[in-house]
Design a protein around this nucleic acid. Structure first.
Lengths: 282, 282
DNA sequence: TGGATCGATACCCGGGCGGTATCGCCGCCC
DNA sequence: GGGCGGCGATACCGCCCGGGTATCGATCCA
């Protein structure tokens, strides 16, 4: 199987429409139809059920869609990492660290300092990601190593080392009734009619429906809380950078957040190894 | 990048010789040379350093070799798993479980029994592997799920669930001086001049050099021990199936062996999920 | 210095991939 | 209910690219 065929199949399987898939691939519809049916013949499997009105995935098609995405990610990663390796050999070497935009910068700063102190440290390029984007970055080679936050992110398929576990707090306007409490429960926070939880943009840039205000980044969020429009549950380390006018109260039944450093399992890069070593020594 | 190019590069990188690589690929040498240099041009990276007497990998080439192998495994897995899914849809569904040939069958039997009792259980095809082969089987789709043994196997890149941890024993002829001891240390076993550890075949079928007798499988090994030609360190569960004339003595400083069930991280198969569920309930 | 080895280059050919035109099928709507 | 529109499949065509043979050029060894 060639990656071209996999790309074609993924396009059709995602669009469930040969015409649109062909447009997305920048080609005409007939050769795409042919390529798919040839693929089906070679695999000895029906991947798509077509009527002239609708295209649906078969069981085998669903399997191939999952596996093809993983395979294409691996091929893309091969290409990107090779390019980066070549660049590193003849120029400035570096390593790409993916981290959640707006996450506590304290641990990150300590990590960067500790790594910079290593004898063979190279430049660390930070890749600030939206929520849950880091895994894809690692998988397709845009990043070499990432900081993930359990249980929100999944470490599935990566090698990891746990760095720190912390409880969560709710961040409120200082004047709010709950702000004077010594602790709260999750239910009390999520059901506050006056402070609905904010809405974050999806991958496509649109916001989900709901009562909460729209927030695009960490700074906006803090502003919205200060204005008394929303509240937010966050790891307790975010207390350290809390501006005036905001209060943090422990949420006793919220799951503990574990920060882990993760890297692709076959990574043999000195830089990644160095970062991991520095991280575990923190 | 097309998988064809990756296959070409891996062949050359492994052989470090364009002629031999071309022969292995069943093609002539000139188009192979062209394909590689085209790949290098497109990547903007020198992958191989050639003199007319020797070919060596560059830094970038080494990266691509590792990544390309992983990517090709993923593509192969996509193909195999799709074929199996299609087969399962129109015939007898099944799941392939890779396990070490000659490992303790007791845990395996319990697992198979527990899974068979599940309401939607399908047939489990056993794939008996040589030492350390299971990981490759999982990676390239020849197996759907595997039983691995830490610390000998690595679970890198898979999702896992630990099933059991056990200490190790040394298996000796019953009449041997050590057989009456209540415990021994690793050094005492590995340095026995009268019972050198056996040699296992490599991937290519050849045996490493050494004093020990050659063994091909578990039965042969037990025979060799009974004959007083060798000894062997194994998990204590192997005591259960020990024939007459053999004795087992705990090795106090040998690492504990953990049996884990492992599966590819993006697996969504009902059968794999069922097996894992059954395994964790043991 | 000549031969052997090995990768690169030059040139040619055929198949496969992508394009256009068109068909066949099936809902839908007037 | 028949015409129409949307959609995937088929037919056919042209061209590019991947693979083949012949040969060159460099390097090492005798």
């Amino acid at each position: 199987m060639e990656t071209r065929e996999l790309r074609y199949f993924v396009a059709v399987a995602e669009e469930l429409h040969f015409g649109r898939a062909a447009a997305r691939l920048g080609m005409a519809q007939p050769p795409l139809s042919r390529a798919i049916s040839l693929l089906e013949r070679r695999l000895g499997a029906t991947l798509l059920e077509r009527t002239s009105r609708a295209v649906t995935l078969t069981e085998a098609g669903a399997v191939l869609l999952r596996e093809a995405r993983a395979a294409l990610d691996a091929v893309e990663a091969a290409e990107r990492r090779t390019r980066r390796a070549a660049l590193a050999a003849t120029g400035r070497p570096g390593v790409v660290l993916a981290t959640k935009a707006g996450a506590s910068s304290e641990l990150l700063a300590k990590l960067l300092d500790a790594y910079a102190a290593e004898p063979d440290a190279v430049a660390v390029d930070l890749l600030l990601c939206g929520i849950g984007e880091q895994e894809g970055m690692l998988r397709d080679g845009r990043a070499d190593v990432a900081l993930l936050h359990l249980p929100f992110d999944t470490t599935s398929g990566f090698d990891t080392e746990a760095l720190r576990t912390e409880e969560q707090v709710v961040i409120l306007p200082a004047g709010h009734p709950l702000a004077s409490r010594t602790e709260v429960r999750t239910a009390e926070v999520t059901e506050l009619p006056d402070l609905p939880l904010p809405r974050w943009p999806e991958r496509d840039g649109t916001y989900p429906e709901g009562p909460g205000p729209q927030a695009r980044d960490h700074a906006q969020l803090l502003q919205l809380i200060a204005l008394g429009r929303t509240c937010w549950i966050a790891p307790e380390s975010s207390r350290n950078q809390l501006p005036d006018g905001l209060a943090a109260v422990p949420v006793v039944d919220a799951p503990a957040v574990t920060t882990v450093i993760a890297w692709p399992p076959h990574s043999r890069s000195r830089a990644v190894a160095g970062l991991v070593r520095a991280a575990t020594r923190l």
